[in-house]
Structures are given as structure tokens and as C-alpha cells.
Amino acid sequence: MYDSIIGVSALTVELGGNPVLRDLSLSVAPGEIVAVVGPNGSGKSTLLRCLAGLQPVTAGEVRVFGRAPADDAAFWGRVALLGDEPAWYPGLTAREHLELMGAVHTRARMTVDAALELFALEERADAPPLNLSTGQRQRLSLAATLLRPSTLLLLDEPERGLDKGFRAELADLLTEYADEGGTVVMATHDQGLAAIGRQIAPSGVTA
């Protein structure tokens, strides 16, 4: 077993010869919320991609659930990643995307109706995601991410496109998720969201 959900040691990532992350170490305990903060280009998204196993590292080690992250079904069964907006399936409505998520994950964290209400999408439930506004599509992405069961949430700027009121609600939802034992690592520019967790900067210095 492992004491920490995430263990990163001496992580260095170079992109095109430029060091994006240098000698970063990080340990995240179960049930913890970690906010990765810093200016544009400081490596927040790169760190998240490393944790998801989608970014080859130049040096160092990344361990998630005690092993190197792998892009396979077992890993994604426990990890929910929300980065850029996903490409929605053609021909399905917003509700049906959530229905699909609930049908695949039999022990969903909430019902589809509850998710639609929680993310204020009830009135747009029958719309194809392409017909939703940017903020509504982000809420749909978050609804799909939080509807499914997971142990670790990796969120890259979850506040993107959201109004101020809903950002505060999102902070509450993430706190609730952590209270249930889930772990959250998110890259964010939102001070309110960052305030609910331990803040780190990708340079390795605690903010």
C-alpha cells in the first residue's frame, strides 16, 4: 500500500529544450486538495499531464497510487482528468452524455437529474453540447467528471468560462468530494478555488 496518493520526486520536464519543470517534488495524501498556482507558462498544466501519465518526463519519478501512471482503463477507472474541453459524441444531448457516464460507471456519485440540477443545466439538458455556451459546456464537463466515481481528480483550470457565483459553488463541491475521501489536484488561477487547498507552485516552492 502507499501513504500518499501521489509521489513526485526530482521531476524535470523539458519541452523543446526549455525546462518547464525543474527538480519538483510533491507528495499528496488521500483526501487532500492541492491547488497548483502560478503565472502562465509556469508548468501547471505540464505537471498535471505528468500526473496523468500523458507527458514523458525528462528526469525524476512520478508515482500515482504507488506506481507510474499508465494510460489504461485501470488507471482511468480511479482517476478523472478534466483538461481542455472534451470532444463530445455527435448526436447526443447534454443529458445523454451524463446518462452515458452513469451507465458506464454503475456506482455513480450522483444521479443524472441531481447532476443537471447541481450544475444548473436542467433547462439545457436536451441541447447538443455544441449548442451550449462556453460556461455551460464547462459545467457539463465538470458534471460528467464529478458524476462518475473516482479516487483522484485532476483538474486543469476548472474555473474556465464559469461565472463568479458558480466558481464558489465549485469550491464547495470539491471540498465535499475531498470530505468523501477523494483527492483533488487542480491547476487554477482562481484565488477562491486555490484557497480551499494546499497551494503549491510548479517551481517546487510552496506558495
Binding site: 482511468w76 477507472g77 478523472a80 482528468l81 474541453e85 472534451p86 470532444a87 463530445w88 452515458l100 460528467a144
Partner: peptide
């Protein structure tokens, strides 16, 4: 991205 979220 969506396939990873679905996890099949």
C-alpha cells in the same frame, strides 16, 4: 479526453 473520463 472523453474516453479517458469514461474509463472503458
Amino acid at each position: 479526453a472523453l474516453a479517458r473520463l469514461i474509463g472503458v
